[in-house]
Design a binder for these strands. Structure first.
Lengths: 358, 358
DNA sequence: CTGAAAGCGCTTACAG
DNA sequence: CTGAAAGCGCTTACAG
């Protein structure tokens, strides 16, 4: 069988206590003793059983990443960022994928992370005050991404401000009929981001005395398919929008497909603006609001590790920056009719123009 | 403090052994006793400490997913697939992200998963025979994705055959100068997929007496950026290719950007064919070889769970299917000059054609 | 069907 | 600097 601590102790001629101390690099071990222990451990190919260590020490040296939808770009980036700093700090990363309504409910009631991890980071998990209180009662340090509460450190962005910036960009290009693709209205989960972004969008329209038309605010479910379907609705509307602010790049890219399928052109006929700066955004020329997602994850992990040391400190809240990145999917309305200094950029076509048959 | 098993035992008026049995649903517990235990556990909000359970039982009920690059689409899909069936089977999912050379080395020498998980799945981890042997010696059941060995069950695809299909598609469209975008030639890791795909590509060219030009086989590093750079090389070559087979969709999409930036059109000037059927592929109209990546992960998890029961059974090897999906980025060479029944499809442009200034 | 007890493999005061 | 011993919170023969 695999060697245990007492095998190492025997071989090194010391007690298990000394082995434990030597192997963990604790002070108060004579250098010569330490060497002997290290040798023995190497000889026997020994590794400590983490479960025994955890049981005895009361710490697990692992943290849980709680994400609603693991396959989405945003979440995988967050997790990757966190995993990096956690691994560097000697922590394992556990995955709690709670996409389904059922798994979310079970997570919230059974609190499966109790006694199992030293901390959790909630990535864009929409929880009510009451639910957050329950989670906190589990006694496990928490950090949230995309949600700010009194109870735990958090990393957020200024969704309202970013949405204002996005919408203003479109308004400044001369657009007056501006649509939005957002979340499902009846989503039982209450994400904050879509709500705040909607407010920004609406406020900027109001600010410019632009008509607020409910039929231009359509749900896209934050997916490629959802974005495509949402755009189909927008295109079919009476007096359709000349610009659309999609609340995620994935929805924006879905929308681009619909626009093309409908025989329309971006940005000549319609401008599209996304959110996130997805890896793909640059490659499809998408104008978007960038946010440093990997860094969200890194920061969350750092805050969590920090919190392990000072659990009673005032929660730190950090607001990460966002930035408008103008690429090729937004342009002035009716660019061909303008003759000002501004020349429209053209979105990068995947293919050239159709050519007449010879 | 949080309740332990003896608290529950006291409250229910039974021994801890009985609590343990009742809570785990073991037989040989009187229904009335079980009820009393369940009540007590609920009252006390009790959950078993997994570390204690693991130490006593010798099983961890968790498995490790070992991936080279967590943020890449392929791997996140695999992990998501596996996580789903593992969670359903009562297993936790641990992440081993070993992208860097250093972390890979440490993984292979320290075998950090020992005593920590009941099994690991190696996702596209290129390991030598010797390394695989080392891993097996750790005594932890293994399943591999994308690599077939004698030692462990595996899930692979027919990379050679798929590459033949891809290349033949281009040949059949009349292309004679066909490029390839693949892995870095000096990558110290020896992935099998790029090698097998290259063979398929080369064999089909040879089969059709098409010239094999080394300068048309360029490295793309399986990333968007790499694909873009590779395409830049191909475009600059003397007698450039009229079609390119990129070994991943991400590289293909990177290539599309370069083509556009160079003022060329897809598929009129050049055809592009990818590999994977990335979520985005449909949305950029990319012709590609599809493989069921999420299912790879699911299958791997199933094989692993199975193997836990029958560790000495002959390893099962499954070859997952692949399928050519023709979309808009491939077309006959010089389509305008043909007048057969085949009308070229046009790649979906993100924007319409440039129009002359008014 | 149930309990007493050993044991899983560590860590950590405590004493020296 | 080192060791003996208790203890972490479970599970599992074994006995009844």
């Amino acid at each position: 069988m695999t060697a245990s601590i007492s095998d190492v102790a025997t071989q090194a001629g010391v007690s298990v206590a000394t082995v434990s101390r030597a192997l963990r690099g604790l002070p108060n071990v004579a250098p010569s003793t330490r060497d002997r222990v290290l040798d023995a451990a190497r000889d026997l190919d020994y590794v400590a059983d983490p479960n025994a260590s955890r049981l005895a020490a009361g710490r697990t040296r692992s943290v849980g990443m709680v994400v609603p939808l693991f396959t989405q770009w945003f979440f995988s980036q967050c997790v990757a960022g966190a995993e990096g700093v956690l691994a560097a700090g000697g922590y394992e990363t556990l995955l709690y994928n709670i996409g389904s309504h059922e798994s979310r409910r079970r997570f919230l009631t059974e609190l499966p992370f109790r006694k199992r991890v030293d901390g959790i980071v909630l990535v864009d998990l929409p929880v009510s005050e009451a639910e957050m209180a329950t989670l906190c009662e589990a006694g496990v340090p928490i950090v949230t991404i995309g949600l700010r509460t009194e109870q735990a450190p958090s990393i957020t962005i200024d969704n309202y401000g970013a949405a204002c910036t996005a919408t203003r960009h479109l308004v400044n290009l001369g657009h007056e009929r501006i649509g939005m693709i957002s979340n499902l209205p009846d989503d039982p989960r209450h994400f904050h981001a879509p709500v705040d972004r909607r407010r920004g969008y609406q406020d900027v329209l109001a600010e410019h005395d632009l008509e607020l038309r409910p039929e231009l605010d359509v749900p896209g479910n934050f997916s490629l398919e959802g974005g495509a379907e949402a755009m189909a609705q927008l295109v079919a509307v009476d007096r359709p929008p000349t610009a659309v602010f999609a609340q995620s790049d994935e929805m924006a890219i879905g929308a681009l497909k619909t626009i093309h399928d409908a025989g329309l052109r971006v940005p000549e006929d319609i401008s599209i603006l996304g959110f996130d700066d997805h890896d793909m955004a640059e490659f499809v020329g998408l104008t978007t609001i960038a946010q440093p997602v990997v860094q969200h994850g890194e920061l969350a992990a750092e805050l969590l590790l920090e919190r392990a040391d000072r659990p009673d400190a005032e929660p730190t809240h950090v607001e990460a920056p966002t930035k408008l990145i103008v690429r090729d999917t937004t342009a002035p309305r009716h660019p061909a009719r303008r003759d000002g200094p501004h020349r429209p950029r053209r979105a990068r076509p995947l293919a050239g123009p159709p050519r007449g048959l010879p």
